[in-house]
Amino acid sequence: MESNYISISYEQLVLAALLILINITLSWVLRLGLSQSLWLASLRMVVQLLLVGYVLQWLFTLRNPGAILAIALGMTAIAGTSAVNRSRRRFRNVYWNSFVSILASSFLVTSLAVLAIIRIEPWYDPQYLIPLLGMILGNAVTGISLALDRFMEDLVSQREKVEALLAVGATRWEAARGTVKEAIRAGMIPTINSMMVMGLVSLPGMMTGQILAGASPIDAVRYQIVIMFAIASGTALGTMGIVMLAFRALFSQKHCLRLERLRLVK
């Protein structure tokens, strides 16, 4: 790719790092007690990104579909785990369920984007596949963790309502439907909100990056549109998947609500 952007040198990185001094000074003057976290967060951000830069640099030279798939699976596993880690409750196989939902949804949507929409040759070209998958995963994690958390918390707090319905003859699905709907809604809200204000309030990072790197804004916007649709459908599928799996785990075949299968962590 012919580049027409300014490379950033290490000296320039150091200059940028000086900006954090503004935060640290503020924290010190106002006694916010944030200095330590700010140092740590800055350090982590720099180290993680530099490492990822090198990893991606290496990754983009790979031409082996197996290796690239393995890396994609690894990313998915991390995403599946962190979606669960945000919530306070666990049930058996919750990690596995989260992994299955996120795997099915994001792989399906990513392959549609790669094969049918952007039509990348070869399909495993990591320069496209990995960032695309990454963005879809990142958003699906948010949706899944919000929906899962909402579903479990609502079942606990609305237990009596759900059981009152079961007691007069509701099937487990009839008793849970309201809770399921609310959970899926909760998972979808961030995606819908971000689509609503996209371009007006927020300029998405990916698009900004492409423009900085010299792509024409028209092209960058088109990529962004494709990505947003992929993100929205991936999040919707993942959110629905995890809620349905959690529903199956927490309601028995005999139409009982089995809250004892939930345990609190921390």
Binding site: L166, A167, V168, G169, A170, K254, H255
Partner: peptide
Amino acid sequence: MPHYRARAIYL
């Protein structure tokens, strides 16, 4: 169970 619970209701 829904058939049973329609006949034996718990309050």
